[in-house]
Design a protein around this nucleic acid. Structure first.
Lengths: 214, 214
DNA sequence: CAAATGTCGAATGTCGACATTTATGGAGGA
DNA sequence: TCCTCCATAAATGTCGACATTCGACATTTG
């Protein structure tokens, strides 16, 4: 058995699941005892999982009080997307090797898939295609340190906000925006690539943040 | 009491202290029982502290085996410094407000202080001045998300490698390198600032990594 | 003699219980 | 009616103990 699955991992998965299906929403209290009871384990592994999620930025934690699902302010939302644009843009611009023809083809197909999914109103497929699109790009970096940071941030934003960004643009716009990014990437001008992705995420960040200015 | 000091915090401080004074070195095993015994607490808070340090990247962890002080490969060292240059450069270039005259003055004095400390062979003062120099720069960002990432990375590199970088350059070079960075920052060309800091850390990263190619 | 195997000690993984702190809700008084 | 205070309940913080797993050494076998 290569990767031994310990209890804390299960708990983390469980909480992520609750976040995904909306049973846990930003601001909700996360009670260790409840998680422990639900999963039939003691609080020790649950505490580890919770502390892990706190480290990931998915939960906010205050000693003696407990933890709640992270509730980012509009500014924090923007900041997070800015940071992601910075990291992803650099990762892509910095990854040395060329794209194979099949890799380019795949990425272009993902743009089409996004448009089709959006047109069909299949948010899940759209979001999944988007995630794959971006991961195929930033995943090319050989800088594992960078990759880890990107994935942490990506996962956090995905779990907290994935519900929303499907509705910001028309199917056409979604395809065009991502095709434009691809054009920058394939042309290979580092600085332009970085600027492009920064802008891409700044815009998304502002749109998401606008939903939380109540 | 604003910030309640819990046991795990003490343990984290303790481990960081051991890293600072060299009693813990990369690759050393970190035993929960020993830490618990040394600090007179049970293993529960120790485990939390260890998991926290794992999240910070200071410890490597393998289930059922335990954790060791992170032992970065030369490539990982370079990657980490590249990431830091990326984050710090952007944070500085992106921070909007101008420098006050006193702020500029303070930064220039830190350059001088670094030179003097290096000339005196006072590594501790040199390292401290360097840390303050960089923190005064990147700390100007209002992007808390970014700041958190920078400080995590900064702290990690500091604790793992602070012993070395004092010896890479002559006192003159140290002062000149940092004065050059200041010049870029004060002139305010965003892209040049980012490039400058990236280069600064790439060079440092390669020098540190070279020490670990045994 | 080398390699595989069995055994033992030690460290981690998990548990249940207790101590401490916080939040809640009601009783009492202004 | 509203505020204050206190009592109660519930959640977190910590502890000690047990179960399980890993690593190392001694032993056996080819």
């Amino acid at each position: 058995m290569i990767n031994r699955q310990t209890y804390p991992d299960h708990v983390v998965e469980h909480v992520c699941g609750l976040l995904r299906n909306g049973q846990l929403q930003p601001g909700d209290k996360v009670r260790e005892s409840h998680l422990a009871a639900d999963l039939g384990v003691s609080r020790a592994p649950v505490r580890e999982a919770v502390r892990h999620l706190v480290g990931e930025g998915l939960l906010d934690y205050r000693p003696q009080i407990g933890s709640i699902v992270a509730k980012l302010s509009p500014q924090q939302i923007i900041d997070s997307y800015v940071a992601r644009g910075l990291l992803e843009g650099f990762a892509i611009a910095d990854s040395g090797h060329e794209f194979s023809a099949t890799a380019k083809q795949e990425l272009r197909q993902l743009c089409e898939l996004m448009e089709v999914s959006a047109a069909d109103g299949d948010d899940e497929a759209l979001i999944d295609a988007g995630a794959r699109f971006h991961r195929q790009l930033y995943g090319r970096t050989e800088n594992q340190q960078l990759l880890g940071n990107i994935e942490r941030l990506s996962n956090k934003l995905h779990l907290l906000f994935y519900r929303h960004w499907a509705n910001f643009y028309s199917p056409d716009q979604i395809r065009d925006r991502h095709q434009q990014l691809l054009k920058l990437v394939f042309e290979g001008e580092g600085w332009a690539v970085e600027q492009g992705f920064r802008q891409h995420y700044i815009e998304t960040g502002h749109k998401v943040a606008a939903l939380y200015t109540t």
